[in-house]
Design a binder for these strands. Structure first.
Lengths: 99, 99
DNA sequence: TTCGTAGTTCGTAAAACAACGAACATGCTT
DNA sequence: AAGCATGTTCGTTGTTTTACGAACTACGAA
């Protein structure tokens, strides 16, 4: 109906991923996970200059964006990259930056 | 230098670029400019479902993030990719996604 | 000089984000 | 059952983002 809707689905998806990556703390977490397969929230709270509730919110955002996933490993939660979406993001950025 | 600051300069820079890319309108503009070298604000207002003042704000954000630059060509303003920073972003994302 | 075009800036309002501490939920271990 | 460890959720606060229309600025043309 709206012929002014020129924004593509790819652009929306990339914006969604990019937005999730738009905070230093979240970039830190993503880079860590992309390199070491998994980690626990507690590991991060020790290293990072934020309290656990704030970290929890950042992790939730990354999860909502689909970039990471959490697996219960009581009483902890193991976080890893969501490989499927990670790959999609990878492809999108690759195509976007023409690399 | 704060030695408790585990967040790297690269992570901060990427977060800054990612944040600027974190909106569909801005992704649209960036993709357009990455493909056609330049455009005018008026061209965009016609295509996009937002008013010119809103577009102006988005362009300002892209400019502040360093991803685009504007050149006065009275009475218009010609927008292009900021090639130097674009290249930096390219490298950062490339390294980050390991591509 | 006055008018029109092209954009930016200002003022405003609603929504989203970011951070914290307190309270809560969960599931081991005594 | 009671306590502990690990996180999440809630409530609050202040900031930032997104969007709009109105007002403004800059410049070229009539």
């Amino acid at each position: 109906m709206n012929n002014k809707d020129v924004i593509t689905e790819k652009q929306r998806k990339m914006a969604r991923y990019a937005k999730a990556m738009g905070h230093p703390i979240r970039m830190y977490v993503l880079e860590l996970l992309s390199k070491q397969s998994c980690c626990y929230s507690g590991d991060l709270t020790e290293e990072l200059p934020i309290v656990k509730s704030t970290l929890s919110q950042h992790l939730k955002e990354l999860k909502d964006a689909g970039l990471i996933q959490g697996e219960i490993e009581a009483p902890k939660i193991k976080y890893c990259i969501d490989k499927e979406n990670w790959k999609e993001a990878q492809e999108l950025f690759k195509e976007f930056f023409d690399i």
